[in-house]
């Protein structure tokens, strides 16, 4: 299965921008939840730190989207990462300690 080159380029661009963003969101959420669960940080600190550095994941997704030779593998990989990380974060989150407002 070989799509015409301009279409493949469009898919790469969309994957980098859209899927890349959702992989970033998921990674930030999962990393934050894991830091609260296993490093004992409070949610605010964990979210702020995870959110700050998660942007590098988006940059990596851009590289992947354009370096990949197998488009389906790249698309599937990003989709699994985006949904998997978010699902993981949502599964662990209910077990975190509740502190409330100051």
């Amino acid at each position: 299965m070989t799509l015409p080159a301009p279409l493949r380029t469009t898919i790469r661009c969309l994957a980098a921008i859209i899927l890349g963003y959702f992989v970033t969101v998921g990674t930030a959420a999962l990393a934050a939840v894991l830091m609260v669960r296993f490093a004992g940080w409070d949610r605010t600190d964990a979210f702020v730190v995870a959110g700050s550095y998660s942007w590098i994941v988006w940059v990596a997704c851009f590289m992947w989207a354009f370096a990949a030779r197998q488009l389906w593998f790249m698309l599937l990989g990003m989709a699994i990462m985006a949904t998997g990380t978010m699902a993981g974060a949502k599964a662990i989150e209910p077990y975190l300690p509740v502190l409330g407002a100051l």
Binding site: V25, G26, A28, A29, A32, V33, V36, D42, R43, T44, A46, F47, A50, G51, S54, M86, A89, K90, E93, P94, L96, V98, L99, G100, A101, L102
Partner: peptide
């Protein structure tokens, strides 16, 4: 992501 992390403790964001 913020919604997911603070789902059961929404006010903690203003800690």
């Amino acid at each position: 992501a913020q919604e997911a992390v603070f789902a059961s403790d929404p006010t903690a964001f203003d800690q």
